[in-house]
């Protein structure tokens, strides 16, 4: 299980290989988020960020079979096309791997304390939170047996 909040770039291939070493693993699903269009600065809340991601991963593990996983989120100055975030989940079968990967990513969007400030022609501006992201998180709460996160 790897959770890292870092300024440096990451290597998805390396991370997937690192979480795929057990014989019981039959599926690995991964997601990578990239910077679109404009350069930005990403701020976060050191300490809480790692804690929030760990809680999200724990919740995913309580819902699906997660044999191993890696979540890396960058902060600091980022340029268009840079990698921002990656989630990779290793499981016995694809259903659990896909679902847990998407769940972790959806929850990250609304529960992990990161803030983007984009460089625009009018100057640097804080990105507004999207209602769609809240909806993406809420749909998981409707699953039976879910405890949800704050």
């Amino acid at each position: 299980m790897k959770i890292s909040v870092q300024a440096e770039d990451f290597d998805l291939g390396f991370e997937i290989e690192s979480i795929s070493k057990r014989n019981s693993i039959g599926a690995v699903a991964s997601f990578v988020g990239l910077v679109r269009d404009v350069s930005m600065a990403l701020e976060h809340y050191p300490g809480m960020t790692e804690r929030a991601i760990a809680k999200i991963v724990d919740e995913a593990k309580s819902r699906w079979q997660v044999i191993d996983c890696a979540v890396i989120h960058r902060y600091g100055a980022l340029q268009p096309n840079d990698q921002i975030v990656m989630v990779a989940v290793a499981s016995g079968h694809r259903g659990d791997a896909f679902a847990a990967c998407e769940f972790i990513m959806d929850y990250l969007k609304t529960q992990a304390p990161f803030w983007k400030k984009e460089q625009t022609p009018e100057g640097a501006q804080w990105v507004e939170a999207k209602a769609d992201d809240d909806k993406a998180t809420e749909r998981w709460a409707k699953l039976p047996g879910s405890s949800g996160l704050g």
Partner: peptide, 10 residues
């Protein structure tokens, strides 16, 4: 205690 705007990571 921390105060912040709605988060925009990911």
């Amino acid at each position: 205690v921390a105060f912040f705007p709605p988060v925009t990571g990911g």
